[in-house]
Nucleic acid binder design. Structure first.
Length: 140
DNA sequence: CGCATTTGACCTGCGC
DNA sequence: GCGCAGGTCAAATGCG
């Protein structure tokens, strides 16, 4: 990364525009654990999916956890590539993906997959602030 | 030194 | 059966 350093919190004055809510039909994948080689239907744990729509200029929204980017692919509906992040915690297989809207470059959709099971490293105050200004969509 | 990031290649699933 | 799409992993590099 070479764009913004450190945490890229949202703008304190950036309110959410509830106009872009068409991402409800976004990703259709449900569970994709270890799809590499040998894999059998073992765990059928329903992974909760949380979609956060925020207004930010940077894709890197620091929610307080540590994320490691493991891939970047372009989407058909978007001319911008989607970034895939994964939690770097032990036992924390939480996945997160960030996607930008082609219509609005300032709108960023962050989708969280899974639940964290460990304390946050960052200031929770920041996270709370983000939640306060971001819209939360839950499918479960 | 460690960790995080980057790009490419590879694999799987599904469609036709 | 083959092709396409999407998604993921691996290795390498750079920076702090």
């Amino acid at each position: 990364m070479e764009v913004n350093p450190a945490a890229a919190s949202l703008n304190g004055d950036g309110n959410i525009n509830s106009e872009n809510k068409s991402f409800t039909n976004n990703i259709g994948s449900e569970n994709g654990e270890k799809m590499g080689k040998i894999k059998k239907g073992e765990k059928k744990v329903r992974k909760p999916r949380y979609a956060f729509q925020t207004r930010s200029q940077v894709d890197i929204l620091d929610d307080g956890y540590r994320w490691r980017k493991y891939g970047q692919k372009a989407v058909k509906n978007n001319k911008f590539p989607r970034s895939y992040y994964r939690c770097t915690h032990q036992g924390c297989n939480v996945k997160k993906q960030v996607q930008r809207l082609t219509k609005d470059e300032g709108v960023v959709v962050t989708t969280y997959e899974g639940m964290h099971s460990h304390p946050i490293e960052r200031s929770t105050d920041n996270f709370e602030h983000i939640l306060n200004q971001m819209q939360i969509y839950t499918s479960y």
